[in-house]
């Protein structure tokens, strides 16, 4: 059995997740602090890929990155880099499709962050960067982990946009999802079933991780109600 699709899927999802993690946190942190109207507008734009059919995302990507487009043409001429129909093309599609999951979860966590904690850090003389890393991030940890896991799972399962921009080339661009479709198309039901089972296993593991994170979040809520009892004591 050729394991390339598994390796390729994991590689694409991992790299996408790193990019999504950084971009998601950056956007969520900056946007959570913006005035309401601007926030709502940017929010719609950034969340759109979540509700659009992935093929529409694929269409836009092809329009902007194919060698016939301005950007794609420029990259090909100047750096001799071809993006479309390469394994790393899938990174572009995965990032765009999975980004909203990370962004929205992280933004929710940042919005529920008590602004007094930030002010307290400032009056104690801590730099804003230090406040972000030692106070904001640990306090919002649960939301950020949940967002990251969701984004990784989504990136791993991405099919529609990926099949358009990376296509299916065995040992080059094949991912688990494109492989399952390809095997089904040529009638190799047995092998398709194997990949389906592998995919099921991976998804199950991720759901378990998400649930564990959520359970921990609930425990913290219980701890918070403990404060009440403590105050009365």
């Amino acid at each position: 059995m050729d394991w390339f699709p598994l390796w390729n899927s994991l590689r694409v999802a991992a790299i996408s997740t790193v990019i999504i993690f950084l971009l998601g946190i950056l956007f969520a942190w900056k946007i959570a602090k913006l005035p309401k109207v601007i926030k709502a507008t940017i929010d719609v734009i950034l969340t759109l890929p979540l509700v659009l059919p992935p093929t529409v995302v694929g269409y836009f990507l092809l329009k902007s990155l194919s060698p016939n487009s301005v950007l794609g043409g420029f990259l090909l001429e100047t750096f001799e880099v071809r993006i479309i129909m390469q394994w790393y093309a899938a990174i572009f599609s995965s990032v765009i499709v999975a980004f909203p999951l990370m962004y929205r979860t992280a933004r929710g966590a940042f919005e529920s962050f008590d602004p007094d904690l930030r002010s307290a850090g400032q009056t104690l003389g801590l730099s804003n960067i230090k406040i972000f890393w030692i106070i904001v991030m640990p306090t919002c940890k649960q939301g950020i982990i949940a967002g990251t896991v969701l984004a990784f799972a989504r990136a791993l399962g991405e099919y529609g946009a990926t099949s358009m921009v990376a296509g299916y080339t065995p040992k080059q661009t094949a991912t688990i999802s494109t492989t399952v479709y390809q095997l089904w198309r040529i009638g190799d039901d047995a092998l398709a079933l194997r990949w389906v089972l592998i995919n099921l296993a991976i998804s199950a593991v991720f759901l378990i991780i998400i649930n564990t994170v959520e359970k921990r979040t609930k425990q913290t809520t219980v701890q918070q109600s403990q404060v009440f009892t403590n105050a009365i004591r």
Binding site: D114, L117, S119, A120, T123, I134, I135, T139, K141
Partner: peptide, 12 residues
């Protein structure tokens, strides 16, 4: 600055 709800860092 002593905050109303004390603003202790919850993860520390």
């Amino acid at each position: 600055y002593l905050f109303q709800q004390y603003a202790l860092f919850p993860t520390m």
